[in-house]
C-alpha cells in the first residue's frame, strides 16, 4: 500500500514541536487518499524515534535514517536521505511542516526525483489538491499536484498539532549514501529570548516604524510580558535595527496566527498582513485613521503610542494581578 511520508526534525533527542502540524496535514492527505501515514526521523542520533513511535500520531510506521553527516542539518545531506527513503519506501506523497529546514531540503529532493512540490499548504481539498496562498496572501490557489510522487510543505499556523495515538513500529532504513558535498556549517547565531517562540505564542505584540527607535520598544516588551506573549515587528522596524531581524512578521518573516495580535505603529502593508491575517483577534493602534491595518483589525484605536501604551500597560497590569 502506498504511503504518505512525513519528514520530522528532532533536537536533543526529542521531536521538535513545530513538526506536529505537518503530521496533521499529512494525515488529512493520507485519509483523503486512503493511504497509510508514515513518519521519517533523520539525524546522527535518531533515538527520538522511540518516543515518536510510542506517541504514534496516527502513523502506521516510523522509519529512521541514522548518519553522522545528517547533523548539523544541511539541505544537501537531508535531500540525499529523503531521496533514499523514497526509493526504499515508495511513498506517493512526502512532506511536513514548512520550516526553514524543509523549505530548504524538500525542493532539492523533489527536483532530483522530478516531482512537483506544493508549498505552504493551508488546506487539504482532496488527496491531490491543496490550497496555498499566493501574492502575499491576497489570493488562494487551489493547486492540483499529480504524478506517482508529490511533495508538500504545510503552514504550521494553519493545522492543529497532531495528537498522540496508538504506538507505531520503528524500523531503520539502511544503505543510504548521504553527503554534504563539501559544505560546512560554521555555526548558528540564535536570538536568546525567554519569551515563547513567535510562531507558537498565543499573544504577539508587534511594533513598526512609528516606534522610531529600539529603546521605545521597552513599553511594548512590558505589554508583551504581561500577556505572556512574543514580541514581533514590521520589516521597517527590523531593517532600522530597532529589534533583531528574526522578529519580523510577514511574507518574508514569520507567519503567525496567535489568539491575540496587537499591531502598534504599523501601517499594514500587504507583506505584513500576509504574516498575521490569520490571527484570531487583531488589535491595531495607529495615529493615522487611514492606515490599512485598520481594515483587518477587530479593534482599532486611533492614537499615538506614546499616549496609548503606558495606559494600556497599566490597565492590563490591573487585570492580570
Amino acid at each position: 500500500m502506498s504511503k504518505v511520508l512525513v519528514v520530522l526534525e528532532t533536537a536533543g533527542g526529542q521531536l521538535r514541536p513545530h513538526c506536529l502540524p505537518g503530521i496533521t496535514a499529512a494525515k488529512q492527505i493520507a485519509d483523503a487518499r486512503g493511504q497509510e501515514l508514515h513518519l521519517l526521523v533523520l539525524g546522527a542520533d535518531t533515538g527520538a524515534a522511540a518516543e515518536i513511535a510510542a506517541a504514534g500520531y496516527g502513523a502506521a510506521g516510523v522509519h529512521t535514517i541514522t548518519d553522522p553527516a545528517l547533523e548539523p542539518f544541511t539541505a544537501e545531506a537531508w535531500a540525499d536521505a529523503v531521496i533514499h527513503a523514497v526509493k526504499t519506501l515508495a511513498p506517493s506523497v512526502v512532506g511536513g511542516t514548512a520550516s526553514s529546514t524543509l523549505r530548504d531540503c524538500l525542493p532539492r529532493a523533489a527536483a532530483v526525483l522530478d516531482a512537483p512540490l506544493c508549498a505552504e499548504v493551508i488546506a487539504v481539498k482532496s488527496g491531490d489538491t491543496f490550497t496555498r496562498p499566493i501574492s502575499a496572501g491576497r489570493a488562494l490557489l487551489d493547486e492540483k499536484v499529480s504524478g506517482d510522487l508529490v511533495f508538500f510543505t504545510a503552514r504550521g499556523s494553519e493545522f492543529e498539532p497532531a495528537a498522540a495515538g496508538a504506538a507505531a513500529p520503528v524500523s531503520a532504513i539502511e544503505g543510504a549514501s548521504v553527503a554534504t558535498r563539501g559544505v560546512e556549517v560554521v555555526g548558528i547565531r540564535k536570538t536568546e529570548s525567554s519569551r515563547p517562540a513567535l510562531t507558537e505564542a498565543s499573544v504577539v505584540v508587534s511594533g513598526g516604524r512609528g516606534m522610531r527607535e529600539g529603546s521605545n520598544f521597552k513599553v511594548l516588551e512590558d505589554l508583551t510580558d504581561l500577556l505572556g506573549g512574543a514580541l514581533g515587528a514590521s520589516r521597517a522596524a527590523t531593517d532600522a535595527g530597532m529589534v533583531p531581524a528574526d522578529l519580523q512578521v510577514g511574507q518574508t518573516g514569520k507567519i503567525v496566527a496567535p489568539n491575540l495580535y496587537i499591531a502598534v505603529a504599523i501601517s499594514g502593508a500587504i507583506q505584513h498582513l500576509a504574516g498575521m491575517k490569520g490571527s484570531n483577534t487583531i488589535v491595531a493602534i495607529n495615529k493615522d485613521e487611514e492606515a490599512p491595518i485598520f481594515q483587518v483589525a477587530d479593534y482599532g484605536l486611533v492614537a499615538k503610542w506614546e499616549e496609548a501604551l503606558p495606559r494600556f500597560v497599566e490597565l492590563v497590569k490591573a487585570r492580570v494581578s
Binding site: K125, D142, E143, V150, F294, Y299, G300, V302
Partner: peptide
C-alpha cells in the same frame, strides 16, 4: 505535474470596530 484548479479571494475578515 502542477495544475491550477481555482484561484479565489481569501475569505474577508468580519468587519471590526473602532474604539
Amino acid at each position: 505535474g502542477e495544475a491550477t484548479v481555482a484561484v479565489n479571494a481569501p475569505p474577508a475578515r468580519k468587519a471590526g470596530q473602532m474604539v
